[in-house]
Amino acid sequence: MTTLGRQLSIGPTDNTSDQRTPRQRLKLIPETARKSFVPYVPARYVSRTHEWDLTRISPDRPRAHGEAIEITGTVRTQSGAPLRHGLLEIWNANHYGRYRHIEDHSGLQLDENFFGMGRVVTDENGQYKFWTISPGAYLARPDIGRWRPKHIHISVSGGSSRLITQMYFPDEPNNHSDPMAILMGDAFERNVGTSYETPNIDVEQGFRFDIVVGGRNATFFE
C-alpha cells in the first residue's frame, strides 16, 4: 500500500477553517530530509513565579469571578517518556466567555481580576499544575446558534515535542457541535479533562488532563 500525505479536513461551520485549510494533499517528506523537519526547542524557563495561578492577576489581588479550578497532569511523548522542563503556555476565556486579548471584540463582560494567561514548566517527571477560572462558553456563530464549548488552550514546547491543543470539560452540551471536536471524532475524548475533588485546597474542583505529544518528531531524539 502506498502511503499518501494527509488531506486536511475543514471544520464544519467554521469560516476561518474554510479560508485557511490547504486544499492540496500534504506532501510526504523524503526520508533524506526527514530530520530537518524536527525543530528542537531549548528549555525555556520564561514562566514567572505567580503565573501558575490564573485565578488572580497577582498574589495580592482578589480572585476573579467564577469557579476556581485546578488542572494537573503529566506530559509524555508517545513512547511514554515524560517531557521534562517543557513549557506550557495556557490561555482561556473568563467566566463570561471573554478573552482579555486586544483582538477579542465580542463585547462580552471583562473581569478586572482576570488576565487569562499563564505559563508553567513541567517538572522532572513531566508533571504540571495550574489554577484558573472555569471558562465560559461563548456563542461563536450567532447566525446559526453554534457555541464554542468551555475550553482551555494549552501550548506545549520543549525538545522535539510541540503541541498546541485544548482541554475540554466533561458532559458539556456544546462539546459535540464544535467543528474541531467533530473532526477529532471518537478521539475527542482524549481532550476532555477528568474531574476530581479538591477538599484540601482553595479551588472548587480539579481536572486531570494528561497530555501525550504524538508524531515522530516528539520521539525523534529519544
Binding site: G11, R76, W91, I164, Q166, M180, V212, V213, G214
Partner: peptide
C-alpha cells in the same frame, strides 16, 4: 510502548 496522542487543536485567534 505507544500511547494515544492528545489531538492537536486550533490555536484560535487569541494566542496571547
Amino acid at each position: 510502548k505507544t500511547l494515544l496522542p492528545t489531538n492537536e487543536d486550533t490555536t484560535g485567534p487569541y494566542f496571547p
